[in-house]
Nucleic acid binder design. Structure first.
Lengths: 137, 137
DNA sequence: CTTCCTAATAGGAATGATTACGATTCATAA
DNA sequence: TTATGAATCGTAATCATTCCTATTAGGAAG
């Protein structure tokens, strides 16, 4: 996801171009990894001291609903990152130290043989956890 | 996991046979699904009014560490269930309404072709979410 | 450029899940 | 039966997240 795509999606949804959203998008563009609201607040306070968690969480939720960000839960905390490639389904290896990810193009739903009669499938989650090469060293 | 196995593991680890632990194990044995601490407290208060969350969370953590229970995170809350079959790796379909599970014997780690050079793999998560036949009806 | 309307934000309080802690009770081994 | 430390109770504290209200600021319209 590029920054232009993000702005296009935002304007298509009548959402305004604010300083906070600029900083937030830049942050995700430059940090190709999962971040928590706390980390984001620390970063954003450089640009805007006094920014509130309400602003951060509200924008994170909005962006996630619009598909600009993607979200996962790691050790009890919500983590967010830029949505890699709109429309292309994939999964992630996630570094448990720095939050960096590696794409996994395979989807287990295409590979497993089980069938679940009368079950309504709503979604699935597949993630591999560990240390990225840098954090492992 | 049978109740006898659970008690054996507990005694092997010098953990005492308390009324709370009996009620907790019975509860999980009779409820083949994921439960939250809150649900567990509601159930256990019938047997022991005034039981505290400290007791519940401490025992849930202990049991999970010992492999008696297994844990997952669903919509921001920790959920626990009896560990199905010690030693046999598998995954779950989880009903998002009632928490009931269906075993999925396949593991994506055996099926995917990706290799992650220099990555230290610590674990993985694969879950399918949806409605079980009863809740779908 | 100015005005106006509403979305967006700040600041802080409230919530809900989970954890911590001191005092007390209980399981069990001797 | 008693002693000892584990387990529990009751409650306070913590942490992430959400809610609320007054204020600010995009940006459309004039």
């Amino acid at each position: 996801m590029t920054i232009e795509e993000a702005w296009r999606i935002l304007s298509e949804n009548q959402l305004k171009r604010t300083k906070n959203r600029e900083v937030l998008l830049d942050l995700f563009l430059e940090n190709d990894r999962y971040l928590t609201a706390g980390m984001i607040k620390d970063f954003m306070e450089n640009e805007n001291p006094g920014i509130s968690f309400d602003t951060i969480y509200r924008n994170l939720s909005t962006f996630t609903e619009l598909g600009i960000l993607e979200e996962t839960e790691l050790s009890g905390e919500r983590h967010f990152r830029m949505h890699c490639d709109a429309g292309v389904h994939h999964h992630h290896f996630i570094c448990t130290t720095c939050g960096k990810t590696q794409n996994i193009p395979d989807c287990p739903m295409d590979l497993i043989s089980i069938n679940l009669p009368n079950h309504e499938i709503e979604g699935h989650k597949f993630e591999i956890y560990g240390k990225c090469p840098l954090c492992a060293a």
